[in-house]
Structure formats: C-alpha cells, structure tokens
C-alpha cells in the first residue's frame, strides 16, 4: 500500500473571478503515490507545479480540489493533521541557511522539535546524547550542537536540516531542491547521506528537483510535470532508457552531460 497518495490535486493561485475567466491551474489534476520504502522524484521546469505538489503533501498548501491520503486516510493542511501524521512527514528545503533560525543553536533547533512532539522525544536517555547521535548520523561532529547557522557552511546547514527532520523519526521526507543550492563537491555528500538514510531507516523520500542527473542517481521512480499536469510516471530506468512522452524526451535531450560534449 502507498504511504502517501495524492488524488486529482488542483491548486490555483488566482482569485475566484480570474479562475472563472480561465486562468490556468498551477497544479491541474495530479495523482501520484509514494510507497513506504521508495524514492519518488518529481521533475519539471520552473512553474511546472512540482513544488506546489510537495507543499500540499506537507500540508503547507491547501488545494482547491483533490485529496492527500496518508496511510489511506485523508489529511488536510498541517494545522488540522493529527500529531502523528505531522510528525511522520518532514520537509527539507532548498536554501539551507534560510531554513534555520540564525539566533538558535543547533541543539535548540533540534530540541524544539521534541518540545512540539513530546511523543517523539527520547525517553530512555538525555536529549544531549540523542542530539549528539543524530548529528553523527548525518555526518556532523557533535560539537556543532553549540553553534548557530551563520557559522556553518551550506553543506553543514543542510545536514542540520536533515538531522532536524530525522529527530522526529519521519516516514516520509519531502526534499524540495534540497541539493540545488550546494556546491557540486558537497552535493554528492548530501546525496550519499540521503541514500544511506533511506536504506537504514525505512524512509520514503519525495524528491523535488530540476536536475535529471541527480534523479538518475537516487530515484526509484520519476514523475514528470509540465504546466501543472503529470505527463509521465515511470521507473527511473524506464524513464531514462525509454521516455514515453514527447515532453520527457525534450527534457532529456536538453540536459547536458560531461561525456560526449
């Protein structure tokens, strides 16, 4: 069964009057599903609606129509979700520095998640020990706990964002362009980390990106969006070897490779 499923999602950012005049939907009838142990990549160009789909899954955006199902049960926007569902879906954003409060230490950023979700807080040991272990899991020195975001590099900030998400033992990680802002030598560190976490923690990942090379490395399945609609969903191997939709072919043709330049 799917961990998360999106059915006939419609989002329109225009006013009701403009909608009646036929202004297009940002997301127009999208349906997709993520299984409990897979990485689904959603790819598309700017304005394709991929981030809006991610925000609906995370409950940060209320769709005009359609449903988001978690474990088969419909869930609304984040404030209306049961605490267990809120805990189970965590998000990692594009800009690593902007997604951490610059005035809080890494320790208090992580501890805040446990103050909000008491049920996920470590019961059998001190929070400091648990924070140190989380930081080690994402490849950071536990000493980072006392530092604040402005003194960390982009890659370190992104690891802290991932540690913060993992602190709540999520079942789905929504990554919106989570490696796009990183230097290429740091990007592979974070991709390795995500791939490793998925294997060790039974984590599903919804990975939003425009970088097809990254998709090929980490995705099990790929959904291609164009102008608010889903044009193709396929396993990663099929999509890259046998693209079915003309738009997918166009995207693949436009992508550059180092080889064959």
């Amino acid at each position: 069964m799917s961990l998360i499923e999106v059915r006939d999602l419609v989002v329109n950012f225009h006013s009701r009057r403009e909608r009646r005049r036929g202004r297009p939907n940002a997301v127009d009838g999208v349906s997709l599903a993520v299984r409990p142990d897979e990485t689904l990549a959603v790819v598309g160009e700017s304005g394709s609606g991929k981030t809006t789909v991610a925000r609906c899954v995370a409950g940060l955006q209320t769709p005009q129509a359609g449903t988001v199902l978690f474990d088969g049960a419909p869930v609304g926007r984040v404030a209306k979700r049961p605490p267990e569902v809120r805990r189970a879906i965590q998000m990692v954003f594009q800009d690593p520095a902007a997604s951490l409060n610059p005035r809080m230490t890494v320790r208090s950023i992580i501890a805040e998640t446990w103050r909000t979700h008491r049920s996920a807080a470590p019961a059998d040991r001190s929070w400091d020990d648990a924070i140190a272990e989380l930081l080690r899991d994402v490849g950071l020195d536990p000493g980072v706990a006392d530092r604040r975001a402005p003194s960390l590099s982009g890659g370190q900030c992104q690891r802290v964002s991932i540690a913060r998400a993992l602190a709540l033992r999520p079942r789905l990680l929504v990554c919106d362009e989570a490696v796009s802002a990183l230097d290429v030598s740091v990007q592979s560190q974070i991709l390795r980390l995500l791939a490793g976490l998925r294997a060790s923690r039974e984590l599903a990942i919804l990975f939003i990106t425009h970088d097809l090379g990254v998709v090929r490395q980490i995705a099990d399945r790929v959904a291609v969006m164009h102008q608010g609609r889903l044009v193709e969903t396929a396993t990663a191997d099929d999509l890259f070897e046998r693209p079915g939709h003309p738009y997918t072919r166009k995207l693949l043709d436009a992508a550059l490779d180092l080889e064959g330049a």
Binding site: S188, D237, D257
Partner: peptide, 24 residues
Amino acid sequence: RALVVSVPAVRSRTAIAEPLPGSP
C-alpha cells in the same frame, strides 16, 4: 578530478560519487 566525478550523468546511470570530505 573530484569535480568531474561528482557530476551526475543523464545519459548513463552513474553511482553517487565518493564525496570529498569537508566544504570548499
């Protein structure tokens, strides 16, 4: 060399590169 191997390919499937330690 490290930069070149960290570029993921689209037309062939490549494993995620062995990352460089640390940051620039």
